[in-house]
């Protein structure tokens, strides 16, 4: 082993990180509290952000993030390691958030403005730009909205988005292109109105 050429530093670091991650996952699957704590610390912020970006309410987003992380660690034995843990976690998170969103949309359509009243009393810094961004995002169809969120706010590559949404890379690219075009059109229409 000693006679082998030394690995490039970045690759060596990546391999070490991967093996460390695998080890952590294995330990977490066996119920090791310490490993769960490390994984939780690594991923909770991303999950929390994603929940807020989809649900737009602090409390609901936090509850959703709790539930997602709990489910993820509960279903850990079912994680087969075919994809990265973060990809799997994103998938679990997206499914849960979209389920909540759909349920609340159905409830809103049944019971009227109750949800609206709650959401306005939420997270404080709501500038015009923020509101415009949220409105434009909400105007997009759900599949386009999701690819845009994953790309713009979570820096996910086409391949990673494809793995999360179980789509081929080509489809991700075309969806992203469509999302960007639609978003620009809505944004410009909003600016023209104002």
């Amino acid at each position: 082993m000693a006679k082998l050429l030394p690995l490039p530093h970045a690759l060596a670091r990546r391999l070490a990180r991967n093996s460390h991650e695998r080890d952590l996952l294995r330990r977490a699957q066996n119920g090791d509290r310490e490993a769960v704590a490390v994984l939780l610390g690594r991923h909770r912020e991303a999950v929390g952000r994603l929940c807020f970006q989809i649900l737009r309410e602090r409390e609901r987003a936090e509850d959703a993030a709790q539930e997602i992380l709990l489910r993820a660690f509960e279903k850990m034995p079912q994680f087969r390691g075919e994809s990265e843990f973060s990809t799997w976690l994103y998938r679990v998170a997206l499914n849960h958030c979209l389920e909540i969103k759909r349920t609340s949309t159905r409830r809103e359509s049944l019971f009227g403005g109750e949800e609206e009243a709650r959401s306005t009393a939420d997270f404080s810094p709501r500038s015009d730009t923020r509101m415009a961004l949220e409105t434009a995002l909400d105007a997009l169809p759900e599949p386009l909205q999701i690819v845009l969120v994953l790309r713009q706010w979570h820096d996910q590559s086409y391949e990673q988005i494809g793995a999360i949404l179980n789509l081929p890379t080509g489809t991700v690219k075309s969806r992203l292109h469509q999302a960007r075009r639609e978003f620009c059109r809505i944004w410009e229409a909003q600016n023209a109105e104002n």
Binding site: R44, G48, R49, F52, E62, R130, A132, Q152, R180, C184
Partner: peptide
């Protein structure tokens, strides 16, 4: 080709999400 116009990209960059509450881990 995936880039958004600068004003929209800036809006995305400025968008802030609230931090998780302090008792998040304890609850977890």
């Amino acid at each position: 080709e995936d880039e958004l116009p600068p004003d929209i990209a800036a809006a995305f960059d400025q968008y802030q999400t609230p931090p998780l509450s302090r008792d998040f881990e304890a609850k977890f």
